[in-house]
């Protein structure tokens, strides 16, 4: 098994990129990247077919390490670049990786409109509830009362629930996983990539350096264990009372619906436009 894992890593990592990577020891981003690579490998997608795009932040550094067509865009705008890529070349499999602040604060507008528009894209949002790279400022998913470098007296805003937001905005496929449930995550990513339409996979992750330390959440292992104890599968959550779900979150597939995919609809428009252009003008 370990040998196979090593082989897989070498198959997909860029050998001309100078390591070490930028992530802190114990960071959940590596688990997400590992799950993504396994999902892609299992789907048997060619490296040339894949575009991995990202925004800014710790999650934004992911594309540089892997051997795909990779794009590291501006803060919050990864989905807009991805939209252009997918529309101009629909044969490419476009995967976008963002952080919670990247996707839902500065990129919030792009996020809801991408979900509404329903292009065949897969958006992975690593939610560590903080701006890690810039030094631990509160993000739209920082829980009420938490201590961050820009809420030193405690956070007074309410947090977004990203997966639910995606469902409400109309995403065709929405799932949530955690970095503890690595195998579940792998499956969710696989389904997300396979899905024809806009898919969102939110991944609850740990930032022990910027979030955990200030909120006495402990070391990476403790934080990842916290994720284990607070994640409830959707099936189980349905049987639980509102009160017992209070500090918990659901994992699994929240939405999987069929709706018209933009690129397919646009192809029909092209046919229609060509037909009407040929018709003699009245």
């Amino acid at each position: 098994m370990p040998e196979e894992v090593t082989k897989l890593i070498h198959k997909y990592l860029r050998h001309d990129k100078k390591f070490p990577h930028v992530w802190c020891p114990g960071c959940g981003n590596g688990i997400v990247l590992g799950a993504l690579i396994r999902a892609i490998d299992r789907l048997g997608l060619a490296k040339d077919e894949i575009v991995l795009a990202s925004g800014i932040g710790c999650a934004g550094r992911m594309p540089v390490y892997v051997d795909f067509n990779t794009l590291h865009t501006t803060h919050g705008r990864a989905l807009t670049f991805a939209t252009g890529i997918k529309l101009a070349k629909p044969s490419l499999t476009v995967i976008i990786v963002m952080g919670d602040g990247d996707a839902t604060a500065i990129g919030g507008n792009h996020f809801i409109h991408a979900a509404r528009r329903n292009l065949n894209l897969t958006a992975i949002i690593i939610n560590n509830q903080i701006y890690g790279m810039t030094g631990g400022q509160h993000s739209p998913t920082t829980p009420y009362g938490c201590n961050t470098t820009t809420s030193p007296y405690g956070h007074i805003e309410q947090a977004f629930s990203i997966a639910e937001l995606a469902v409400a905005a109309g995403a065709a496929f929405v799932a949530r996983g955690t970095v503890y449930h690595a195998q579940l995550l792998e499956g969710l990513l696989e389904k997300g990539i396979q899905k024809s339409g806009f898919s969102v996979v939110e991944v609850m992750s740990n930032c022990h350096i910027q979030f955990g330390r200030r909120n006495k959440m402990g070391d990476p292992v403790t934080m990842i264990k916290w994720l284990k104890h607070h994640a409830v599968t959707i099936e189980k959550a349905g049987k639980m009372t509102h009160d017992s779900m209070k500090d918990k979150f659901t994992i699994g597939i929240l939405a999987d619906v069929e709706k018209p995919v933009y690129t397919e609809e646009y192809q029909k428009i092209r046919e229609e436009a060509k037909r009407s252009a040929k018709e003699p003008k009245r």
Partner: peptide, 15 residues
């Protein structure tokens, strides 16, 4: 903002 992002993305595919 999105318009500018989209045209850059499209251009990366050679269009």
């Amino acid at each position: 903002i999105a318009s500018m992002g989209a045209i850059i993305g499209a251009s990366l595919t050679g269009v």
